[in-house]
């Protein structure tokens, strides 16, 4: 890892230069603290957990826990439930942030205020958002009261303690991240590209479709991955505004239940590993798609 002090031979360039050619030089030493940090705080617990998942407390061979997870519908379905929440939430967050960020990409009066308002939910945290949603969407909450008063509905619609409550909560907490990321990716695209397209006869729809969107797509893929991971591991909202023992029993609840309520740490680890693998599969799929896109410079400050 350290730069070498090898003897330069007559024909070959010094080892130091050959290493530098491959991007290996002393600057890499700067990574050492980060790598130690990752090893101690992330890699070790992770590998420990993986090991634990293959040594079931009830015996039955290394794969007993994995078999148990996929045989037991109550456990297996948590995976499906999680996907059903995380995929739409991530997709909606990314799709909603595109037009919003596109409209707001140029400076205008009041831009800061608007951006701040959109970003406030980040600072609220999941618990506060969940409480707000309970107030607002509950059968006796303002929304139902208003709709009832307007005679738009006959009886309160159920929006909390079920799938919808969790989905709303995931969107509210996840949108600001998606929006900020999309915004920064957009600001990396040179605005004169759109001007050039305009002088060539492209209206705003064509400019968006043929210029901005293709240049933005790799960034959107990353945004989607991060939004998905954020939504996939979400736990408090499934508990607070969902139906944690039934329709919104997500995989993180199952892991929590196994490890900290039944004290089967091995099964808990197994569920956590399955969760990680499931996330990695989705991310790998998205990144594979991203690999097919143009990813070079987009002319802007990014």
């Amino acid at each position: 890892m350290t730069a070498a002090t090898g003897q330069p031979t007559a024909t070959r360039p010094a080892l130091r230069h050959r290493l530098a050619e491959r991007g290996i030089d002393r600057a890499l030493l700067l990574l050492v603290p980060g790598l130690i940090f990752i090893a101690v705080l992330f890699l070790y617990p992770f590998l420990y957990g993986v090991g634990l998942s293959f040594s079931p407390q009830q015996g039955g061979g290394p794969f007993a826990n994995y078999r148990k997870f996929f045989d037991d519908p109550y456990l297996r379905n948590t995976l499906w439930t999680t996907f059903r929440l995380a995929l739409p939430a991530a997709l909606i967050n990314v799709l909603a942030s595109i037009p919003m960020a596109y409209k707001l990409r140029r400076p205008f009066r009041g831009k800061r205020t608007l951006t701040t308002l959109l970003v406030v939910p980040i600072t609220l945290g999941t618990v506060l958002t969940a409480e707000g949603l309970l107030e607002y969407l509950a059968p006796a909450g303002w929304l139902n009261k208003t709709l009832l008063a307007l005679h738009l509905i006959d009886q309160p619609i159920e929006l909390v303690h079920n799938y919808w409550g969790v989905l709303f909560s995931l969107i509210i907490t996840g949108f600001p991240f998606a929006f900020l990321l999309t915004m920064s990716y957009l600001s990396g695209i040179d605005p004169t590209l759109e001007s050039a397209a305009a002088t060539l006869g492209a209206g705003w729809r064509e400019r968006f479709r043929f210029i901005t969107l293709p240049l933005l797509a790799p960034g959107l893929a990353i945004t989607f991955c991060l939004s998905f991971v954020l939504a996939f591991s979400v736990f408090p909202s499934a508990f607070l505004v969902g139906d944690p023992s039934g329709r919104t029993r997500v995989i993180s609840i199952a892991a929590y239940h196994a490890a900290l309520e039944q004290f089967d740490f091995s099964l808990g680890s197994t569920i956590a590993v399955i969760m990680t693998v499931a996330m990695l599969i989705v991310i790998a799929a998205v990144l594979a798609w991203r690999g097919t896109l143009y990813k070079g410079a987009s002319g802007g400050k990014g």
């Binding site: 004169t192 001007s195 050039a196 210029i211 293709p214 143009y294 070079g296």
Partner: peptide, 10 residues
């Protein structure tokens, strides 16, 4: 013709 050319990079 723009000063920075503004060619579509993709």
């Amino acid at each position: 013709v723009f000063q920075n050319y503004a060619l579509f990079p993709h």
